[in-house]
Design a binder for these strands. Sequence first.
DNA 1: CGCCTTTATGCAATCGATTACATTCCAACT
DNA 2: AGTTGGAATGTAATCGATTGCATAAAGGCG
Lengths: 344, 344
Amino acid sequence: MGSKSSTLQDVARVAGVSTATVSRTLSNPDVVSESTRIRVAQAVKETDYRINRAARSLRTQRAHSVLVLLPNLANPFFSSILEGISRHLSPKGYSMLIASTNQVQASGERLIDYFEDARADGMIILDGSLDSHLVEILENAPQSNRIIFACEWIDNTSFPVVRCENKQGTRIAVNHLYDLGHRKIAHVTGPDGNVLSHRRKSAFIEETSALNLDLKPEWVIDGDFSLAAGCQAAQRWIALTDRPTAVFCASDQLALGFMAELSRHNFTVPDDVSVMGFDDLDLAEQYIPPLTSIKQDRLMIGEAAAKMLMERIAAPHAKHSNDGAVIPVSLIARASTAQLRSAA
Amino acid sequence: MGSKSSTLQDVARVAGVSTATVSRTLSNPDVVSESTRIRVAQAVKETDYRINRAARSLRTQRAHSVLVLLPNLANPFFSSILEGISRHLSPKGYSMLIASTNQVQASGERLIDYFEDARADGMIILDGSLDSHLVEILENAPQSNRIIFACEWIDNTSFPVVRCENKQGTRIAVNHLYDLGHRKIAHVTGPDGNVLSHRRKSAFIEETSALNLDLKPEWVIDGDFSLAAGCQAAQRWIALTDRPTAVFCASDQLALGFMAELSRHNFTVPDDVSVMGFDDLDLAEQYIPPLTSIKQDRLMIGEAAAKMLMERIAAPHAKHSNDGAVIPVSLIARASTAQLRSAA
DNA sequence: CGCCTTTATGCAATCGATTACATTCCAACT
DNA sequence: AGTTGGAATGTAATCGATTGCATAAAGGCG
């Protein structure tokens, strides 16, 4: 068809009005008369007009897009969060830019560039292990009130956070195992320095202590949320002389790796040890045995984060008392945890 | 610091040259003298200049970003493909926009809008089930030579495709099972109408026939790549009176769901039936039992797709003889497949 | 020395939408 | 009738980078 797509000028010509009127009609229909509104609508249809976002961005200093920063694109944990974010953004005409921390750093970009070169109006950061220097730059940026964290976050910063009830989830997990009769409970942690790892670990220690459980230091096994770390943790568990009868892993991937490695060494879950995870990935239900887990509603986290960000973008100078959101978690009990059977 | 970020004007003033010279220095350093090059570089540093992408986009009619369209954001299968794409794009200063078919349609957007409103310079489409009307629009668009498909594609269109060797992968799979002594082999397919499903299914039929295997119609079980469909397929398998001794699933998720459901009904893999998948997800290795699969290098698919797209964007009118790329697959044999043990 | 070529730079228009300000028109009120 | 106010629209500057064309400076050659 037409080799060029049409512009405001074209619409204005067809409708017999000025570009200003067309622009107003499109962005603020109330201020024009009904008759022009109709004429413009008609002309828009006739010319198949689409707004040029670059031009609008340049003039309004709004990119109409949001950057989502992931620690690692290859981790399936994040996909439903993206889905949630996109679900909220896309009807509002916002686009979603994706980047991973690794690649941003590898390519020599700086995060703040996304603001400074007008590529994004806001950021949702899912990486709590961001370099502290980078974070400092972000905090001091004029756009700092258009940055929010989700899932993970960074302590001692003022960014709002959308997260799940990590402490509560851990407490539920420990009590689930306790209620099944387990008194020796181990924990496989997330990566060192990660705020989720830390939360869940300290909640674990608190709760076992509150229940008066014995907790040997070697029952807290360092991991990093990955399948591979789960395997290694299993080896550590196997090597113990006094083995806990239940293990709470800080992520489902850890738990799956843990069970896989146990199986390779002919241990059986839950007969030899009860295992549970955190996240409730789709696969948890379909593992053998199905994995007991703490469910976090990742879709909801994504939507809540996007919603909060959009509010801040819309009213950048308003006071946002709203300092974040906490999404509830729930226990999904499955076959990987079972009543303790007293040793033969 | 400065409330406004600096512009070309600022740099020009500091360097004592015109904006034209600064622009040229930045985008085409060879045409300016060494001394200005140095002065400008110095001024850029001094003013902490970042290019305004909206302005550049408006003037050059280039968005410097690429849209990646996924059928479904929540599917972990795609994450490493994104990683591969991003790995290629990000060093070139290109951003990656993500959208899912569902949401594009739900929000009333049209794909072509991404071109027409100057949001994207190209598209990588990972959805082979796109509405045919949409595809037609894309084919007739002036930007049609900046669209490529990856993994999935649509028959009878001229878009280049980056895909894995589906036929060859299927052949390898069937032969692997054959070599283990299996003569009754079932297949769980992908979704109806999907080009991958079709390729793999017809290759399966061809290969079993080439090996002179018996193939009852009920041994080809309809699925849709998902865990849930795998479970359903397992129920169908269980219900058969003459059960195949091996099952080739069109995706790993199918295979995992299949095995999970079997386990719930007290069948054992591979003792009762050998199972294999396609994709080699990270989890395949860590399942119980570890899943034999056909590995496709998703990172490489992503990178190849991005590379091809960038070439087309750089030289839009060149003839690109290069009509796509085929990424090799390989067999990863694990414990879910085993030598046939003759029935007791 | 004068003319031509080459190289380096500047000037100013341009991309397309938005918006402050100015203008026009009409109704309503004194 | 004259004045005022408000609603609707137009004019033109603006956002910031790019680039065709013009100009200037420097070098080459007879």
